[in-house]
Each structure stands twice: as structure tokens, then as C-alpha cells.
Design a binder for these strands. Structure first.
Lengths: 194, 194
DNA sequence: AAACGAACTTACCGAACGGTAAGCAGATTC
DNA sequence: GAATCTGCTTACCGTTCGGTAAGTTCGTTT
């Protein structure tokens, strides 16, 4: 049941790319962490860009799969949305890494705007918008544009997530905990009682 | 009235750091863009980190100054907040660069959490929270925690801002324009009619 | 048992990286 | 007018970067 080197390289690259960004990560570092040579990595991916693309593809699959599992566990679109917001608000390590990767992509994509991000974000966003639209058909959030509503939620959640280390350091652990509570309360208020 | 080399280096570094991040920017590139040697840059800043710190300091000053100018133009806290949200929602080039720098800092700061970001974000956040608290004393937004409410707005605005190139490319120019309208409408709705 | 392809290894490579050392022109100070 | 300081320059350095070339090892196929 041991993972093969290729997928272990992707996992390790995901950690380092999310932590240090594309330019801040060297393929040598990735390979060394697994105890293999840099050329073993290049044997599987030929270039650094292709390794990065593999990481993004993996991240996209993760996001879509997560959404799919939520869809299967809950029938009502509104419940699906609130469950989704709840999950990404309290992410595990992997989820947090994927969110950071996503944000880095948005930043780096600022003028590049290449094709990689297209499939990385597109299907996931579309699926989410689909949920909001279904919820609207069920009679919720009707005063809002679906995409704007969704983006608003995503922005608020993800921005707070990546700010957490800074906020902790800025205001201390216990002050931060009450901030987090207030943040979650505001989120729940929007999703549940709008 | 010509700017000296040092501040021109900061300006150019701000452009490149915001576009490509810390690791994606070389001090050679920065110097070359101004037609001076790399050692001219090192003469003024001694290390790349110090150049980066100078850029962050400049960015922090810009944010605080922007806020100050809004405070002086409007008396009521609620009006100050709505004006602020409006301004950063439609940023000029410099504002956009500063916002991107800020987001990059949050991402890179994820585990580093060093002192640099402390002064970079701290006073600005405190000033903004102060405005929200004043608005609450005037009878607005009373159902929310000030920090959570502010962070919610900041997140929604900034996340949408950095997504613009990707959204344009994903859905086309005219679809994006209507998304933007819906996004602005939602924002105005929150700030004005809560 | 010969051939083969996948999964690596060691040995390199040129370019770019951040940074040091030394010098030099020109304005300022003593 | 000699010395000094500022703002640069060219020359150079060791390290690391992504990537190439050429094996080697080993299980599988023929």
C-alpha cells in the first residue's frame, strides 16, 4: 500500500510550493526531502513547471472531490453550501495548503493569465455556483447574484484563513480566539439566516 | 524635483515584488530597470531583505496616508468606511500593487510570522477597526463584531480584486463586467443598508 | 538467456543568484 | 588644497538554480 515515488513527489511538492511559492521552491529541495536525487524527480516530470502543473491538478481534484462528497452527504443545496463553508473554515493541513496554492495562483496569475489556472479554478467555481443557484431555486439568498454571493463568502473565509498566523501574533492567542468566534458567527449568520 | 535613485529603486522594487513575489524578483532586475548597476542598489540597501523591508514600509505608509485622507474628507465614520471600501474596490495601479504585496505577505507569513508584517498590518488594521467602532457608536452595524465585520469586507473586496484577471479570462469580458456590477452592488448593500 | 524499458544514479553544465572588494568621480568639509 | 564622504562603477566570488548526458540496476517480456 506504499505510495510510489511519483505521487510522493507531488505530495511533497505541494507542501513546499504552498509554503514558499513557485520561485521559492527548488526541485532539489523536493527531491531531497524524499531522499531521492533531483534527477529522479526530473525523470518523472522533465521540468519544474510540469511538476507544478501536477500539483495544481492534484489540488483541483481534491477540491472537486471534497465538494462531491459534501453533495452526496446532504440533499438540500443550502445545507451543502453551509457544510462547505464550515469545512473550509476549519481546514485540515491538506485543505489549507490547497487554499494557499489557490491564492498564490491568483496572485501570480495577475498578468500571466495562462491556461493552467483555467481548469484549476473553473470547474470548482462552476460547481459552487451551481449549488448557490439550486439554493436560490429552493427560495434562499434570492436578493443576491449567485456568483457575487459565493465570491463574497469565499473571499471572507479564505482571507481570514491566511490571516490567522498574523492575527495571532498581532493580538495574542486568546484575543484571536474570540475574533475567530466572531468571524464564524458572522459567517453562519450570512449562510443560515439570509 | 527628480526623485533620487534610492526612492526610485523602492518604487521599481514595489512593482516587481508585487508582480513576482520576493523569490521571483532579483535585485539585478530591479537595478537594470533603472539603468543602474546591481551594486548601486546594494549600496543603498546592503541586502535584498532590506530592500524588501523598505518596500513594505512604503506600502504601509501609503495605506495609512490613504486612510488619513479619507478621514479628513468625511466626518461620519460610516461615510469614511463606505468611501474606503469604494476606493479599494476600484484601485489605481499603486493601490492594487500594495494590496497584492499585502496578500503575498500574509501567505509568506504563514509560518514565518516575523516582525516585519507586524507594523505593516497592525496600525492600518487598528485604524480601520477604530472607524467601524465609531460607526457602531453612531448606531450602525450594531449586530456585528467590529473586527469580524471589517475582515469580512476586506476579504471579500481583496479576494475579488486579485481574481479579476482570472475571472475575465474564465468567463469573458462582458460576463465579467456584470459580475463586477453584482459584486459592487452586494458590497454597497452591506456597507450602506445594514 | 537476450532484450528491454522503467526507475533511478553520478557527473556535469551554463546561467543566474546574492553579495564582496576595490576603485573612482565629484561634491563637501576641514 | 588636502582629506573625506556619497554615490556609484567594474570585476569577481562561491553557491544554487534548472536541466542534460550517460550510465546502472532490476524486474518483465520475448
Amino acid at each position: 500500500m506504499k505510495k510510489d515515488t511519483k505521487s510522493r513527489l507531488i505530495d511533497e511538492a505541494e507542501i513546499l510550493f504552498s509554503r514558499n511559492g513557485f520561485y521559492g521552491t527548488s526541485i532539489n529541495d523536493v527531491a531531497k526531502k524524499l531522499g531521492v536525487s533531483k534527477q529522479a524527480l526530473l525523470h518523472h516530470f522533465t521540468t519544474k513547471e510540469k511538476l507544478y502543473a501536477a500539483v495544481l491538478e492534484e489540488a483541483a481534484n481534491y477540491l472537486l472531490q471534497q465538494l462531491d462528497s459534501i453533495k452526496q452527504s446532504h440533499n438540500k443545496a443550502k445545507k451543502q453550501l453551509s457544510e462547505f463553508i464550515l469545512e473550509i473554515s476549519q481546514p485540515n493541513d491538506k485543505q489549507l495548503r490547497v487554499i494557499i496554492l489557490l491564492l498564490r495562483e491568483l496572485l501570480d496569475n495577475q498578468e500571466r493569465a495562462d491556461k493552467v489556472s483555467k481548469w484549476f479554478l473553473g470547474p470548482w467555481l462552476d460547481a459552487l455556483v451551481g449549488i448557490v443557484e439550486q439554493a436560490q431555486r429552493d427560495g434562499h439568498y434570492e436578493q443576491y447574484d449567485p456568483m457575487a454571493f459565493l465570491y463574497h463568502l469565499l473571499g471572507a473565509v479564505q482571507y481570514f484563513l491566511i490571516s490567522q498566523p498574523t492575527l495571532k501574533q498581532l493580538y495574542g492567542e486568546e484575543a484571536f480566539e474570540s475574533q475567530k468566534k466572531a468571524h464564524m458567527a458572522l459567517l453562519v449568520n450570512i449562510v443560515e439566516h439570509t
